[in-house]
């Protein structure tokens, strides 16, 4: 059995913990991080907009790209350490949501966390990338809270006329 754990900034510890709890001992666990290539692209673009500056070596996009690679490595290091069991680490770069779906192809379980405002339940609990992955996931999905889940008493009142 293969379990893919999507490691993403801000919410990854909950995903690692959930994988430790729910993945069978003999499962092959893959910790996946995807560096969004839009981010260095943004810095390249801002520099390209400075017409006439030349000096390709001053392009901040290159530095941001290197920093992104280093930061992804550190994040996966921390995730592997927190997981504390044998696992495979996987670094990818590209369109985050598409890479995650591609890696989850053929897996038995994909673990990811909700994002959005944690103080309020309800709509908008998934960002665009997470929404895409949930919609297009090619396998069962385990969606976890980034922190202990709130109780059912936090449900809003049902819609309709109040008596």
């Amino acid at each position: 059995m293969t379990v893919v754990v999507w490691i993403t900034e801000g919410t990854w510890p909950a995903c690692v913990d959930a994988a430790r709890t729910h993945a069978p001992q003999d499962a092959q666990v893959v910790l996946l991080h995807v560096s969004d290539r839009d981010v260095p692209g943004l810095a390249h673009g801002a520099f390209a907009g400075l017409l006439g500056r030349g000096h390709r070596e001053r392009d901040p996009g290159d530095r941001v790209g290197h920093l992104a690679d280093a930061s992804a490595r550190q994040l996966l290091d921390a995730a592997v350490e927190r997981f504390g069991r044998p696992c495979t680490r996987l670094e990818r770069a590209g369109r985050t949501e598409r890479e995650v779906v591609a890696v989850a192809e053929g897996a038995e379980l994909l673990v990811l966390a909700r994002d959005g405002d944690r103080t309020r339940l309800g709509p908008h609990s998934l960002g665009p990338a997470t929404r895409f992955v949930v919609d297009h996931a090619p396998c069962p999905v385990l969606l976890v809270w980034p922190e202990p889940a709130p109780g059912a008493d936090t449900l809003p009142p049902p819609p309709g006329p109040q008596r």
Binding site: D38, G45, A48, G61, R95
Partner: peptide
């Protein structure tokens, strides 16, 4: 410059949203 941006970004194997 957007044209240039796309070219540079392709050179760097980066995607543009």
């Amino acid at each position: 410059a957007t044209l240039l941006w796309r070219r540079i970004v392709r050179e760097h194997d980066a995607e543009v949203g």
